[in-house]
Design a protein around this nucleic acid. Structure first.
Lengths: 344, 344
DNA sequence: TTGTACGCGTTATCAA
DNA sequence: TTGATAACGCGTACAA
């Protein structure tokens, strides 16, 4: 019992292979009678079309590639993990598969993707880690590779040339700020990153907007720090802010937030039932600690990106960038109560 | 300037396409003179063989698949992240590619992998999360799919039918135990998991062996707890153990270890410069906190598994399981000093 | 509605 | 050493 092919099946059934092919790809062309007979034989034999042959003929591999980065801090890793999982899920539902790629620079990434594309192994790619003057999309598009990105094209005022989906970080920190304002806080600090990254600036802006909208004086915007993205740094930053009168904190990450939590606790500030601190990314560590955090809803992002990209891929030829429309997803604030470790 | 193919190149050069093919796949068959001429044209034109055509003809896709699990705790995720990255790296060096797959059960996983194999999309797969009575390897092998696993075949006394690589958890906890013994501790507790998993038992065994080898009385083996794998649980478990006289702890995970750290600190135990606590997996959180931990060396595991598996794949037909030999890698103990947060 | 014929790009087998 | 010929499995215009 070898695996059947289109021809072997057709032979056994006494029909042409074209008929079998039609039953699969254009059932309406086949007489119901023969169609059912062929269909039965197909399912009974467990026949599956060979993808290499399909790919060779249709000139598409139904495969996309995405680069994974070495886990630096374990935080970003957790978010990417979730994104990856749901991305693969969403793609599978539409007949696409995801190939993993590693690279040690953006140039290398372009090179690897281009190579795979020119060999016909992939139809498109998903970029992450968008940055100012990111030339990957144009370079790859020049090669004819379909491109999409998880992350907006920073620093571009014109409409982007590729499909992208991103999470509105500013909206997230603004929600966090408003949450703390509602809880009665007025001295809400912001713990940000040293490197003035676009993502970092975006998150800070949401905090600023929230304070301004609440009619707080301009000096409230001074209550902020910049540091590296580490627990220890968050602790130290929070100590400084506390001595400057802060009574709550919005943070650019969960690492910083956990450090701040420790500083608040040592200061003897009431943390029960809810700490006046909000993190970002809703890491497993946050949920384990009972820390409130902004959730990026990467599931929705993966789904949205997949929907747009596969739609674009299927109507291959014409209107390549017609619906290169963007989409900014609103993150959610997850409010938690601290575990018994922090009860007074 | 369209992308060249084997025929178009051959036409331009005035040779047969077979000659061009030979230059790439069997250079020794071609006269040096023509070989160089063809080679030059190949590189100049940027020609790349089409993988669909290659796959169709050679009946191999040079692609492997691996399932990713939804990140439950963020801990396991961090380890898998590292493994995945190095796996892709190692595979690429040998001409293989990795396809990602999701599934919601082991049966589903088998089904998905089988389907991709019968369509000719993959040549093999990498399994993780091995468990007792794991029938995935045999079921997949029955289908003709090449199988390897990161994780030993638990509960099988006979030689496994597939290639695998694993990390010797017991050796890791034993190293941790010996480290604490050298530091002068004699009441070394073990914080384990409730579910009597093979991995968990393995790690506990290393601690037991360490204590026995040190000649400690049998009652020393009583100083252990079982709980769920969470910070809070580790804290509570450690509190109980402390009241039973423990002065150090080996833990089955970093989550538990961090909880234990907090309990030790509240008890006023000296944690400077090094806490008498060792975690497992060497998570980013551990390195951020200055917690000593057992590192699984997943880089080595990925490399070793890839080496064995690709070797097996390349000599396809004969001796399918001839070198299904196993390999148990020894983890390393990473000793750290706590950050200034814990200085007295 | 069904069958015939060709092409997709490559590798393998021979014969020259 | 080289080149013609035949697969590999499938999709699709075209003819019947």
């Amino acid at each position: 019992m070898k695996r059947p092919t289109l021809v072997s099946l057709a032979r056994e059934l006494g029909v042409s292979r074209q008929t079998v092919s039609n039953v699969l790809n254009a059932p309406h062309l086949v007489k119901p009678e023969t169609r059912e007979r062929v269909q039965a034989a197909i399912t009974a034999s467990g026949y599956r079309p060979n993808v290499a042959a399909q790919s060779l003929r249709k000139r598409r591999s139904m495969t996309l590639a995405m680069r994974i980065y070495p886990t630096l801090d374990g935080i970003n890793g957790a978010v990417m993990d979730r994104f990856l999982h749901h991305l693969v899920d969403a793609l599978r539902g539409r007949g696409y598969h995801l190939l993993l790629v590693t690279a040690d620079s953006f140039d290398d990434e372009v090179e690897v993707l281009r190579d795979m594309h020119e060999r016909g192994r992939i139809d498109g790619c998903i970029l992450t880690d968008s940055h100012v003057d990111d030339d990957r999309p144009t370079r790859l598009a020049d090669d004819g590779l379909a491109v999409c990105a998880f992350g907006r094209p920073w620093g571009r005022t014109d409409e982007a040339s590729h499909i992208w989906v991103d999470v509105d970080g500013a909206a997230g920190t603004r929600k966090a700020t408003e949450h703390l304002l509602r809880a009665g806080h007025r001295r809400i600090a912001f713990l940000g990153w040293t490197d003035s990254s676009d993502v970092g600036n975006d998150r800070r802006r949401g905090w600023e907007d929230g304070l301004r909208a609440a009619g707080l004086p301009g000096e409230a915007l001074e209550l902020r720090t910049e540091s590296v993205d580490r627990f220890q740094a968050g602790f130290e930053a929070a100590e400084r802010l506390l001595s400057r009168g802060a009574d709550a904190a919005v943070c650019a990450s969960d690492s910083l937030a956990l450090g701040a939590l420790e500083a608040f606790r040592r200061r003897g500030i009431t943390l029960f039932p809810r700490a006046p601190i909000v993190g970002f990314d809703n890491t497993p560590i946050a949920s384990a600690s009972g820390l409130s955090s902004v959730d990026q809803c990467v599931e929705d992002a993966a789904e949205a990106l997949t929907a747009r990209f596969t739609a674009h891929l299927s109507r291959q030829g014409p209107s390549p960038t017609s619906e290169a429309g963007a989409r900014l997803l609103e993150p959610e604030l997850v409010v938690r109560e601290l575990g018994s470790l922090f009860t007074p």
